[in-house]
Nucleic acid binder design. Sequence first.
RNA 1: GCCCAGGUAGCUCAGUCGGCAGAGCAGCGGUUUUGUAAACCGCAGGUUGUGGGUUCGAAUCCCACCCUGGGCUCCA
Length: 595
Amino acid sequence: MTVTIKTDEQQRARHLAAMRHSAAHVLAAAMLDLMPDAKLAIGPAIDTGFYYDFDLPRTLTPEDLDALNRRMRRIIKQKQVFQHSTMPVDEAKSFFLERNQPYKVELIEDLEREASVAEVSLYQNGDFIDLCEGPHVANTGAVGAFKLLRTAGAYWRGDENRQQLQRVYGTAWETKDDLNAYLKFLEEAERRDHRRLGRELDLFSFSEDIGPGLVVWHAKGGHVRSTMEDYWRESHRAGGYEFIYTPHIGKASLWQTSGHLNWFSDNMYAPVEIDEQQYYLKPMNCPFHIQVYKSRTRSYRELPLRYTEAGTVYRYERSGVLHGLLRARGFTQDDAHLFCRPDQMDSELTRVLQFCLGILDTYGFKDLELELSTWERGETTKYAGEAQDWELAEAGLVKALDELDLSYKRMAGEAAFYGPKVDIKIVDVLGRPWQLSTIQFDFWLPQAFGLEYIGEDGSARRPFMIHRALYGSIERFFGILLEHYGGAFPVWLAPVQVVIIPIADRHNEYAQQVAATLSEAGVLVDVDTRSERMNAKIRDAQLQKVPYMAVVGDREIDDGAVNVRLRTGENCGALQVAEFSARVQDRAQSRSEAL
RNA sequence: GCCCAGGUAGCUCAGUCGGCAGAGCAGCGGUUUUGUAAACCGCAGGUUGUGGGUUCGAAUCCCACCCUGGGCUCCA
């Protein structure tokens, strides 16, 4: 799961970064050419190219991008040499001040203050001089293939209270072929966009009348979801979990105790008042699950307790961050809370981690990134719970990760104040990482709610509590899955598994008979009896990404067969109905990706 | 929330300078009865996101709001 980069690959990566960063300088030079009043902020290389942030006298238009593209090409043609030089800090400050570049002055002042540097590094190409650490390629001619993609808003230093700048994004590659391949990849990503597929495959939608960030599941999407939930239920039952159900709202005092009103209220919907009591829509399930635990005295004998619920939560998200199913305001967590004794912790962690990975594997997610977020030792005031608990929990997580031979990234200081955690992420087709599963210790809630169990010696003890979500959000998981498969769900998830395509009307009756047979066997089947040509029916089934198309005509009726075409385009020829039915059932039951 | 770009039929989009709101696909009706990715003909479909303003006249210009997209910030 970790990538070992060979030395020459590292060198190539460094060269690519230098090239992209050089492209950013060329962009800045072109911008000053176009708008001499432009104030420059920063222009780093990024994963697929580069950007540069500008403070400009007016808004950029698409035509400006074209003009910048042309000017950049001219600069590249001129093969201007990148010259490195240094300048004492004071001189550099007045240099950039004279040139009306306040952001550069601020950067120098920060360097002076934070790194106490005496002189700064500059790079010059043509007339353009920029504060820059480098490295760069030799001259602008070595910048390679690039394209400016879009403009966007960005804050100076990422701080929304500061000046908003205009960011120009570009992509840059060593060769024209690499560039074209990347542009093709972007097109493909657009085709696989879950929002687009959601509409085309009639899976879900959003309604202006309902509100932004609130998902409406259509029949087909609902079918996929319920299949996912069936699998969730089945696996959790086998995994020793117990199913609970809790309400959608709870009293203000509950959220006061849990601490959510203190540290999560920005993300909570405003309260509703009922009988002079304030109730909040739940942004998390934990306080409710805790109530189940607390409903009676617990004995050490009944631990571990594993409660799970597909609980729909609502969180206020700022309007600009909503993104289809991947970032919604209402979503369903497949939440579980594990309550265990200290001596059970290690085995519980290994068990829950293994459980998560097994299920993700079924969905075809093989490439995962694991992150272990830990506390900062000694900074005890920033964290709830006892130092020894933190150490124990971290050791338990490490042990579980090691036992399963998993590689992970250690994120020191990234833990929440209430406990360390392991997050499992996948990277989507656009290269964006999304968090799926999370396994989090919580030292705060058991303390806040005074959770206890009676130990062997009759004294009250505090249980460990672990939050665990596997899909994370069912909506998000579904969205990622949709993009992952490009809408072509494996048989077990497909909302329609088979479309029967009668060639002419006289074959409709036989088609219906076959459909009834398949349907009785539990296969999800449609018959396309429209008065269309077979080719049109195949095309439509193909576009709907139905796994199997079963063509029936005179020959098939004579043989009691169906002529099977897969959505891959492969033609399987005539199969006996029973044979075909068995094949579909086998693929569905094994949850295989094969057709 | 902020910056920018958008919102025209179910979908994708056109609509010039302010002068009768259009096309393709989907839908519906008919004709056709088809052998592995789009048959043909016809019909219907609109509060031009919503509300206000300017104007003889607004899809088009102005204002406010709603929603969507690209980012920033934040997160499952």
